[in-house]
């Protein structure tokens, strides 16, 4: 692909750019937000962005079937991310409880 020429719009290009945008938004959120819960949300956005990239990379353009390996990888990534989210949220809840107890 050349810069400057108008690229042919295909789903993989559209969603690929969208995925990168989502990842970048998540990155900004993760680094620049103060709120603890919102940072978890931002990290989850990053992981969806990475998922977009892999799903786009697996796409082959009909009628060809997509490559199943990246699909499996994304499913793994989703499960890994929900585990990490659950731990982060448990830490947030515990921390809030501890901080409130100390204040009173």
């Amino acid at each position: 692909m050349m810069f400057g020429t108008m690229p042919q719009l295909t789903p993989d290009l559209i969603y690929g750019v969208a995925g990168i945008a989502v990842f970048a938004i998540g990155l900004v959120g993760a680094l620049c937000t103060q709120d603890r819960l919102r940072r978890v949300l931002a990290l989850k956005l990053c992981s969806v962005g990475a998922g977009f990239l892999l799903v786009v990379a697996a796409w082959r353009g009909p009628p060809a079937a997509p490559d199943p390996v990246p699909h499996a990888l994304v499913i793994t990534g989703i499960v890994v991310m929900v585990s990490a989210t659950a731990v982060a949220l448990a830490l947030i809840r515990r921390l809030q409880t501890l901080e409130t107890e100390d204040d009173t």
Partner: peptide, 30 residues
């Protein structure tokens, strides 16, 4: 409390690091 606070910061850094790595993995596949 200090340990939980540090653990949460560690968790954020860890997840972000892993996701940057995963994004790189995606590009290698691409």
């Amino acid at each position: 409390r200090e340990a939980v606070r540090a653990g949460l910061e560690y968790m954020y850094a860890s997840i972000l690091g892993a996701l940057l790595f995963l994004m790189g993995v995606g590009f290698v596949y691409l």
